[in-house]
């Protein structure tokens, strides 16, 4: 659970809260950009980041991203992380939610 997964920042969704959309192996997930916001947020679009539990933790280059993803796939961690993202999405929209 301590490993991050590479994702590409594709959009700024909430500049005030420093949130953006990341593409992680084809899955889109909103992430916090707070830890990598060392420049105007718009300039982060297109950058690759190591994403850990919904937070972009470090910017990495595209080659590093590809190698890291390959290593994670080798360990079975990439699949696990994508499943956890799906679980998270499910937790937010469960059937039988008490209050909408």
């Amino acid at each position: 659970m301590c490993l991050g997964i590479p994702g590409q920042i594709v959009e700024i969704t909430d500049a005030a809260c420093q949130l953006g959309m990341a593409d992680v192996s084809g899955v889109r997930r909103e992430v916090s950009l707070a830890c990598v916001a060392d420049r105007p947020l718009d300039q982060l679009i297109g950058e690759w980041a190591l994403i850990h539990v919904g937070f972009a933790m470090a910017l990495i280059d595209a080659d590093e991203a590809a190698e890291t993803l390959a290593a994670l796939e080798g360990l079975g961690e990439a699949q696990e992380t994508l499943e956890q993202m799906a679980e998270g999405a499910k937790a937010l929209a469960p059937k039988g939610e008490v209050v909408q």
Partner: peptide, 11 residues
């Protein structure tokens, strides 16, 4: 509930 991120819990 299993969540991926503490941000999901806040939501």
């Amino acid at each position: 509930r299993m969540v991926y991120s503490p941000l999901d819990a806040l939501e």
